[in-house]
Computed example of a mutant assay.
Amino acid sequence: MVGLTGRVTGRVGAGLVGEVLIQVPERQGAEAFLAHLAVPGEPLAPGTRVVVLEYQPPRTVYVAPAYG
């Protein structure tokens, strides 16, 4: 999971548990995960591209904005 990219579907921010949709190649599709900010900062609005920095099974990820 670490290093995969996805899109925010439910706002992610400080004190908020958001949601991201991540393409999981091994499972041949996209899956929704509960998401937290990996690094404190501005909230991430729906549609923001993110990268997974930490994964806590079964469905929680810590994300940061993906640049580039």
Rank of each mutant, 00 (worst) to 15 (best):
M1R: 07
M1S: 11
M1L: 13
M1F: 12
M1W: 11
M1I: 11
T5G: 01
G6I: 02
G6S: 03
G6D: 01
T9W: 04
T9C: 04
T9V: 14
T9E: 14
G10C: 04
G10Q: 10
R11Y: 02
R11A: 06
R11K: 10
V12N: 03
G13A: 03
G13W: 01
G15W: 07
G15V: 08
G15K: 09
L16G: 01
L16K: 06
L16T: 06
V17E: 00
V17L: 00
V17I: 09
G18C: 05
E19F: 00
E19K: 07
L21H: 06
L21P: 01
L21F: 01
I22L: 10
Q23V: 14
Q23H: 13
V24F: 01
P25M: 06
E26S: 15
R27W: 09
Q28F: 02
Q28H: 05
Q28V: 02
G29E: 11
G29D: 14
G29F: 13
G29M: 12
G29A: 10
E31R: 11
F33L: 13
L34N: 10
A35V: 02
H36A: 14
H36G: 08
H36Y: 15
H36R: 15
L37E: 05
L37W: 04
L37A: 02
L37Y: 08
A38K: 12
A38P: 08
V39F: 08
P40I: 04
G41E: 14
G41H: 11
G41A: 15
E42K: 08
E42S: 09
E42R: 09
P43E: 12
L44G: 03
L44P: 11
L44K: 11
L44C: 03
L44H: 10
A45E: 08
A45Q: 06
A45M: 05
P46A: 07
P46E: 05
P46H: 04
P46K: 02
G47Y: 00
G47F: 00
T48S: 15
R49P: 03
V51D: 04
V52T: 05
V52Y: 10
V52H: 11
V52I: 15
L53H: 07
L53N: 08
L53I: 08
L53M: 12
E54M: 12
E54P: 08
E54C: 09
Y55Q: 09
Y55W: 14
Y55H: 14
Q56R: 13
P57W: 10
P58M: 13
R59G: 08
T60N: 06
Y62W: 10
Y62S: 10
Y62H: 09
A64S: 15
A64F: 12
A66K: 11
Y67S: 14
G68N: 09
